[in-house]
């Protein structure tokens, strides 16, 4: 059951990455069409636009969701590659725990950074 569920989450994370990364690319490169995400006008990477997006809770949540999806998708893929090297069962277990701890650690750090960025942007 475990691998069936992990694989399903792997695919779901891939779909989330595709959508959110697609959105990011569109905002950054199709600014003529998606001007609403750049309220200060001008270029999408103008500091005023970066701050405006940072003030938005929806964008902050998007960043956190994208971070979670990318971490899960990437680390599960890495786990598959490592498992194909046929490590001994105890090493498999240890590898899984290392990847879980790395993933959770990076997610907490990234979430904290996105949240602090949102707070700073809100008082700017």
């Amino acid at each position: 059951m475990r691998d069936q569920k992990l694989w399903t989450w792997h695919l779901a994370a891939g779909a989330i990455i595709l959508f959110l990364l697609g959105l990011h690319m569109a905002i950054m490169h199709l600014d003529a069409l998606l001007g609403i995400f750049n309220p200060a006008g001008g270029h999408p990477i103008d500091w005023a636009n970066v701050v405006a997006r940072g003030q938005s809770m929806a964008f902050t949540m998007n960043y956190i969701l994208l971070l979670g999806a990318a971490l899960f998708h990437g680390l599960y893929g890495l786990r598959n590659i490592l498992f194909e090297l046929d490590p001994a069962p105890p090493l498999k277990k240890a590898l899984s725990w290392v990847l879980i701890l790395v993933g959770v650690g990076l997610f907490i750090f990234g979430t904290w950074a996105a949240w602090v960025g949102h707070q700073v942007a809100s008082i700017t």
Binding site: M1, R2, D3, Q4, L6
Partner: peptide
């Protein structure tokens, strides 16, 4: 069959 397939031996690799 799912009892076996859903585990590590299944089609995931």
């Amino acid at each position: 069959r799912k009892e076996v397939l859903a585990d590590e031996v299944g089609p995931w690799r």
